[in-house]
Nucleic acid binder design. Structure first.
Lengths: 335, 335
DNA sequence: GCTAGCACTCTGTGTTCCCGAGTGCCAAGT
DNA sequence: ACTTGGCACTCGGGAACACAGAGTGCTAGC
């Protein structure tokens, strides 16, 4: 049904349309790409492609435009991910290397990706799931209050102010801290609940109410932050692009963590480079998303990607996303 | 020059234009507001107001539109800040009360403000300047690395991973931590530099290189975070509005910390509710900014506000900004 | 199976025309 | 001296219209 030439025509249509943003006609196609056939022949192929649903025309007597299905075929079979230039790679590396902490890594990554792709970049904070406890700190604020600080090996720091049920003096807090660290140091976050389960029983009776309060806050912190924060950058790049769905919807989605999370992709194939085109997306039918997992080695941490109009340069975008993911994974592994 | 009635006409023009988004003509004015004079008289007044530069007409044979100068007069002399409804106040209070930490307070505040005003809300993180050190923690990561965690009384936590010049065992780290806390606990951040100046000398010679490294990172952390992070929310509200300057410029400014900072206002009058209209802004000529300081009592912490088109409902917006600032100040004071 | 030619169908653009809103000015009224 | 009604003028925006150009589908020939 789709011979070699028809595929070449589809590829040419996608490439031309992406670069010109105008429906592309048979004549221009036959000229610009050396297809070695006449416009009339191209027209026949286009008719076939339209029949199959890969392209469509906005109105009679206009050129053709790829459909979501057309883009899908293009991405799957007709294009190759375009690697970045050496200069770009170097720029990424030096830019990311300057990060001072995890927050900074994420911020730099999202900006970098936005600038590189000229799209909206989205980065999910690494999840704590696979992290291990590096240190637990209890800081007395006054007689009835302590601050709990949890530091993980990924450089993440969580803090909570805790209201205690009764006055507790500093030496008791210090003791509890020592016990906590002895129990948890180096342990995976997911194993924390079972490790602390019997902890109150190992303490003097009078410390138990406070310990109980503190532990419940600790556990709460773990589950609450399980689904992580997501940040974005490059919203200004939306101003030029035209979305079939309103610009407003896109901006709203960007500020809605839950929606963003679903767009980035459920974690069914966490590490793969995935492309979702137009109507393949759960919300935001008019946009495409190129995303991939990142993180160090088998310790898959989170996802990042970009969001843009379906009419985007997929090979280049995919190359940029993949490259950035690799570099940021490296950085995270090293720290 | 500007008698009572001319001012009333200006007020009416601003109010009508804000609510209808259409140039307002003499006839409609005379009808809708009971000015008790004929359209012809209103026309004369309008001519005078235009002469003075308070209003202008987009083209001949169109109604009048307020100029920046007109809005300025309106804000300064013709309007009263509109207080929020009791229901809104209660909503604010309960929404902010649910915050678990400083990050959460800021996030909630910015969203709340965006929703309340239907504009873009901008919130600066509280600065550390007036904060005091609550606790300094040094966590050994391995022989050559420690993590520095700085906790302030405002609930802010800063962390940095430090590469040491030589191997240092844990007991030495513990000792250094004890010394640091003894020196700094409860001290204002601004006094930290002088307090640690002679600290290396009080240590055994072999610890000095490491201590020196750690201290320099500590000081660096303080100055780097001096000008603080700024977050925004409600970008989707821009989609409806039409800016004279491009939407793109606004979105770019929002992601540029430095620009945002300047827009929020230099700290010359840190606590006042300030309004900057159109061309009064350093960048972004087409937008207005309503901002105010917030923080607990005399310990002025930071600024927050909203950004929108010059054609905005100033009384309502000012009311919302002021109210949110008060509530968030309360919350911060309590924690 | 490819190509050339041709008739057809649109969109987008430029032109013209006209309506109506709104103004500025003037002369009359209070 | 201010206000008011009247009136001519201006200009933007919409409707109607024609037209050129791009692009297509179809058919007949190579």
């Amino acid at each position: 049904m789709l011979d070699e030439r028809k595929l070449a025509v589809l590829r040419a249509i996608v490439e031309d349309y992406v670069s010109t943003n105008e429906p592309v006609g048979s004549k221009a196609l036959a000229e610009r790409h050396n297809l070695k056939v006449s416009p009339a022949t191209v027209r026949n192929d286009m008719a076939a492609l339209e029949e199959e649903g890969y392209i469509t025309q906005p109105h009679t007597s206009a050129g053709r435009v790829p459909t979501d299905k057309g883009y899908r075929l293009f991405v799957d079979r007709l294009s190759q991910i375009k690697p970045l230039s050496a200069a770009e790679r170097r720029a990424i590396e030096t830019f990311l290397a300057g990060a001072v902490d995890l927050d900074d890594v994420v911020t730099r990554t999202v900006r970098l990706l936005a600038q590189l792709t000229r799209q909206v970049a989205v980065v999910q904070y690494p999840t704590l799931t696979r992290s291990t406890v590096r240190h637990v700190e209890l800081v007395p604020l006054n007689e009835r209050r302590v601050m709990l600080v949890l530091i993980t090996n990924t450089g993440r720091v969580e803090q909570r102010v805790i209201e205690l049920p009764e006055e507790v003096d500093d030496t008791r807090i210090a003791h509890l801290r020592a016990v906590l660290n002895a129990s948890l140091d180096g342990c995976g976050l997911s194993s924390v609940p079972e490790l602390v389960a019997d902890l109150p029983e190992r303490l003097p009776a009078e410390d138990r109410p406070s310990a109980f309060t503190i532990l419940s806050v600790l556990l709460e912190t773990l589950v609450e932050r399980h689904d992580e924060k997501i940040v974005f950058a490059g919203a200004a790049n939306l101003a030029g692009a035209d979305f079939t769905t309103g610009l407003r919807d896109v901006l709203e989605a960007l500020e809605e963590q839950v929606v963003l999370m679903r767009l980035l992709g459920e974690t069914d194939t966490p590490s793969a480079l995935t492309v979702r085109i137009g109507s393949e997306n759960p919300y935001l039918r008019g946009t495409s998303i190129v995303a991939t997992g990142y993180g160090s080695g088998d310790n898959q941490l989170a996802r990042l990607g970009v969001l843009g109009p379906t009419r985007m340069d997929y090979p280049v975008t995919m190359g940029a996303v993949r490259a950035v993911a690799r570099y940021v994974s490296q950085i995270l592994a090293a720290s």
